[in-house]
Each structure stands twice: as structure tokens, then as C-alpha cells.
Design a protein around this nucleic acid. Structure first.
Length: 215
DNA sequence: AAAACGGGGGC
DNA sequence: GCCCCAGTTTT
């Protein structure tokens, strides 16, 4: 598949994102600062945005700074984050990361990858998502959807996420990098799901290698 | 390389 | 009832 056609598909996807999709809710349902974006990203590990959105809409009312996050008793915080799963671990992660921000970064979220990765519980994917979303740094944040879907379309042919990051960055013009993750993940969570994909209402089924209407 | 964390949703 | 999911750390 040519880059031109892939960019057309990205455009189709962005037009088909409804305001009530999980990703859009997550994007719009709280005061967006680097800190809240980082906390929301940590909460979204291994769960659906729908669950994250439910939690953050309550959580950020009482805690949208590292200091206020640390004031919440751990048992109470566990109850708040429960719908996202792994709630004991996640409550601890939120407070641990907040403490590191206070101790080492003047209560600010670092805006460079090296510092982000030096914080425990922040890995490659989380760092990329934060740099992209919180600081508008052009970067293609590769997760399971961003790896899976371009391969499904035949735009790239890669075996792991590191190669996907390299190939996508090579083939997609830089001015598109910031929108690639959001558009593809939103699509991957709502329509092109790993399990039970909704191919019958897919706006880009014509381009898919597993198009049910042409196979 | 594999386990562990974990509630919610699809089947 | 069983398996999977916007990941990262630990064994």
C-alpha cells in the first residue's frame, strides 16, 4: 500500500471518530495538563479507555497535582481506580510516580524521553504517549493497535513494535505523526477490535486485506 | 522467556 | 465460566 493511500485512510478514520467514543471521552473529559495526561496514561494500562474515562472524571476533581494525589489515603485511591483493573498496583503507581515528580522534577512532568524513562513504571510506550499528547512533540506512539492495524492493511510488514516504529516514521510525513496514534487506537478500540471486529460497519473495509466482502 | 497484576466485556 | 485487553516490572 502506498503512503498516499494510507494517509487517505487516516483521514477517513479521523472523520469517523464520534464524540462519544472511548478515546474521545478520554481526550476531552478532564482538564488536560501534562500531569493529568500522564496519570490517565498510567491508568489505561491493559484496560479500555471507557474504564479509564470513568475513573479520571472523578479522580481529577480531587487530585490533579502530585501533592493532592499523595494526600488521598491509599485505600481510598484503590477504590477510585478499581474499574481499570490492577487497582492495588495502579493506586501505588500513581502515588509513587507523583512522589518522584516532587522529589526530582520540581513537581513537573519532564518533557524529554530520557527523564521520563528514568521514572519507575514509565516505559517506552507511556513515555511516547506523554511526549505526543502532553507536549505536542511529533512522535508515533506504537502500541498493540498501531502495530497491528497498519500490518493488517498491508501498509507495512513488521514483526515487532520497534520495527513498526521505524517503518511508520520512515513512510509517514512528520506533520502526520501526532495524529497517527489517536486515530488508529480509537479505531482499534471501537471497530477494528482484536476480538470480534465490526467489519460490517468498518469505514475502511475496502482497503483491508481481510475484507469480508471481497474474500 | 514467562509470570504477575485485575476488573470489565465478549462469547 | 473462560479468555482477552492503550504495559511494565519482577522472577
Amino acid at each position: 500500500m502506498e503512503t498516499k493511500k494510507f494517509l487517505e485512510i487516516l483521514d477517513i478514520l479521523s472523520q469517523n471518530i464520534q464524540d462519544d467514543t472511548p478515546s474521545s471521552i478520554l481526550k476531552n473529559s478532564f482538564k488536560r495538563t501534562p500531569y493529568t495526561i500522564l496519570m490517565a496514561t498510567l491508568l489505561s494500562l491493559r484496560t479500555k479507555d471507557e474504564n479509564t474515562a470513568r475513573v479520571v472524571s472523578k479522580l481529577f476533581i480531587i487530585a490533579n497535582t502530585p501533592q493532592s494525589m499523595l494526600q488521598i489515603p491509599i485505600e481510598e485511591l484503590q477504590e477510585i481506580v478499581k474499574p481499570t483493573g490492577m487497582y492495588r498496583k495502579k493506586a501505588q503507581i500513581l502515588q509513587d510516580v507523583s512522589q518522584v515528580l516532587i522529589d526530582r522534577f520540581d513537581s513537573q512532568v519532564p518533557s524529554n524521553k530520557k527523564d521520563l524513562l528514568s521514572i519507575k513504571n514509565i516505559g517506552e510506550k507511556t513515555a511516547n504517549i506523554v511526549l505526543n499528547n502532553a507536549f505536542n512533540i511529533p512522535i508515533i506512539a506504537v502500541d498493540t493497535h498501531v502495530h497491528r492495524i497498519p500490518n493488517l492493511l498491508g501498509f507495512i510488514d513488521t514483526q515487532n513494535e520497534k520495527d513498526t516504529q521505524k517503518e511508520l516514521s520512515k513512510k509517514i510525513p512528520k506533520e502526520y505523526w501526532s495524529i497517527v496514534n489517536f486515530n488508529i487506537v480509537s479505531f482499534g478500540q471501537t471497530i477494528c477490535k482484536t476480538r470480534n471486529p465490526l467489519c460490517n460497519i468498518c469505514p475502511i473495509s475496502n482497503f483491508c486485506r481481510k475484507n469480508p466482502f471481497t474474500n
